[in-house]
Amino acid sequence: MGFNKVRASAAEACEGITSGMTLMVGGFGLCGIPENCITELVKMGVKDLTCISNNAGVDDFGLGFLLQKKQVKKMISSYVGENAEFERQMLSGELEVELIPQGTLATRCMAAGYGMPVVYTPAGVGTEVAEGKEVREFKGKKYLMEEAFDADFALVKAWKGDAMGNLVFRSTARNFNPMMAMAGKITIVEVEELVPLGALDPDHIHTPGIYVHRIFQGVNYEKRIEQRTVRQRI
C-alpha cells in the first residue's frame, strides 16, 4: 500500500518490460549506466527493443550485451563508435540506427519530462538531420522542431535514493539519467545505496521522487572505465 516503490531485485523492478518496447537507458559511455537492469534484460530475453541511449556500450559491456544477443531492433543514439559488433549489425542492416545530436537527445528527454510536445533547436540545421523536419526561424536564426520522446520504460542509475524515489547522482555519472528519469512512462531506478527516508537533504536532491516508479539497490557494480587516462607523478 502507499507508494510502494521499493523493489527487492532487478527482476522485480523490470517486471512488465516486454518485446517491442521502447526503453530509455541512462549513461554516457559506460559511465552511469544501469548495469543491473541491462543484465536483467539479457536474462529476460526480451527482443525487438528500441533503445534511446547516448551510446551503445562496448562489445562486452553495457548495451553491448543486448546487441550481442540481438535483442535490439533500433538504437537512437548520438555516438556509437568503439563497438565492433554494433558497427557490423548496422552496416549489414540487421540493426536500425538513428543518430541524433547529443543535445537534441537530452532535450527531447527533457521535453517529455516537462510535458512539452516539442522543442526547437538549431542543432542539425542544413544537415541530413534536418530531413523531414519542420524548420522555423526565430529572430533571424533557423531551428528544427524536435518531438519529445515517448518511452515505455526509463532505466536509470543513481548513486543514492530513498523509498520515495528521491535521487542523488554522483559526479559525471549523472549525465542523461535525470532527464530520462523524468521522461519514462514507468521509471525504474537502480541505486548504489538505498538510504532511509530523511537521510537525503531535500535541498540536495537532483530528481524528486514523483518521477520515479520503482527503485532498488543494485549489486556487484563493475563500473568499467572505457578510457583510462592518467598523468605521471612528478
Binding site: L99, I100, P101, G103, T104, T127
Partner: peptide, 9 residues
C-alpha cells in the same frame, strides 16, 4: 559512422 555526438549542437 560514429555519430555526431555533441558536435552538431
Amino acid at each position: 559512422v560514429k555519430g555526431m555526438g555533441g558536435a552538431m549542437d
